[in-house]
Design a protein around this nucleic acid. Sequence first.
RNA 1: GGAGAGAUGGCUGAGUGGCCGAAAGCGAUCGCCUGCUAAGCGAUUGUACGCCCCAAAAGGUGUACCGGGGGUUCGAAUCCCCCUCUCUCCGCCA
Length: 426
Amino acid sequence: MLDIKFIRENIDFVRTKLEERGDAVDLDQFVLMDRKRRDILQEVETLRSERNSVSKEIGARKKSGQDASDIISKMGSVSSRIKELDESLKEIEALLGGLAMTIPNIPHESVVRGTGDEDNPQVRLWGKKPQFDFEPKPHWDIGEDLNILDFARGAKITGARFTLYRGAGALLERALVNFMLDLHTTQHGYTEVFTPFMVNSESMTATGQLPKFEEDLFKVTGTDYYLIPTAEVPVTNIHRDEILDEKDLPVSYVAYSACFRAEAGSYGKDTRGLIRQHQFNKVEMVKFTRPEESYDELEKLTSNAEEVLIKLGIHFRTVSLCTGDLGFSSAKTYDLEAWMPGQDAYREISSCSNFEAFQARRAGIRFRRGENSKVEYVHTLNGSGLAVGRTVVAVLENYQQKDGSVIVPDALRPYMNGVDRIVSNK
RNA sequence: GGAGAGAUGGCUGAGUGGCCGAAAGCGAUCGCCUGCUAAGCGAUUGUACGCCCCAAAAGGUGUACCGGGGGUUCGAAUCCCCCUCUCUCCGCCA
């Protein structure tokens, strides 16, 4: 959510910035309703003020035994007028709030203008494409040939976009989770948390998934609970409606979680393999920072994610999302795209964003600089460190051998119970 | 799932219709005092929204907020209804 006062006072700037994202938002309607809300508010508050003072007078008269019936009856009509105004106020605030909830964040000034992913500038490139003296296979073939990924049974157990991991495949997934968590906690200063995988609608609203993107979520029937699409949701909500101590900032958390996405609108896209699943694992980093340090922290967070790929020896590039490709809540986002030889393509494996105060305002996450300063919103950031399923894809495709086996990257071996090469057990 | 008890400010905790944005204590901050420390004394100590002032900050003023929502009343922390959460006991259970 944007600051309503800021929109009011910088309407043209906001309009221009939102147009760069390619979003059509009816700001005129917004301004109109905002004006109306304040008009009603003023009237109702004046009446309340009158009622408060007269009620005091009634109390005083009754105490001293005087008659107060004349002003009591007068206040009756004032009260019913207040009730009327309260209702229209509630109505307009619901409309205004609803509208405010659907306005996306303003892109940071460093974000280049563009319309889609083809306009995203590359900011870094690490390593190079591995050379193969054979035709590299896509991971779904590698996984099935090694009997470590079972797509057919995943589909039988649940449905499309669910996968059964087996043996060294399951071990590889678990090893990657532990490797990433250990790296971020022991080398990068994050505190590990483990959260619920279901959250209520309030939490989903705070981070921006609701109300606009409900169709992307799985909802638990008969409850107000949703399966989390990312640990960003529960982790950011840890401090919802709290005022943090400045001395604790920046707060950095890392969390493993399963993630659940309905993938509405992605029919036919990435239907094979692990790239686009309804359920996948992810290690997520989340930060709460002072406003002035959030962009430095975004750079750190992004390099923390990159470090995972570097340690695994996987070639990748980092791009900065252009205005047209930016997510709803984000002011600036870096995507890490790992090289996937079996698909002859770079695929997104991490997304690192600075939301500035957008989520903090929705979620009521604030801090105080000193004893006598007023509270301010923190900036929230998050990034995948990394998407585990896609990292499995990257490992399998980049480390595949001519004989069909897969070498385990050095960094992962301490987590693989002595397995340094995955071979077929068929 | 059944029965009961609770939810008040940073914390503890009083408050059953007007004198309550809310006692008291603790904590915190500032000042005083004590040649250090401790003790003592005094003051301050919530958030949101609106309006005024204004370059802005500060300030002034009004309204709202005692778990959430609704109701009764001239007036609700206080009475009534619904919901959520916490605790205790029973049942069930990884």
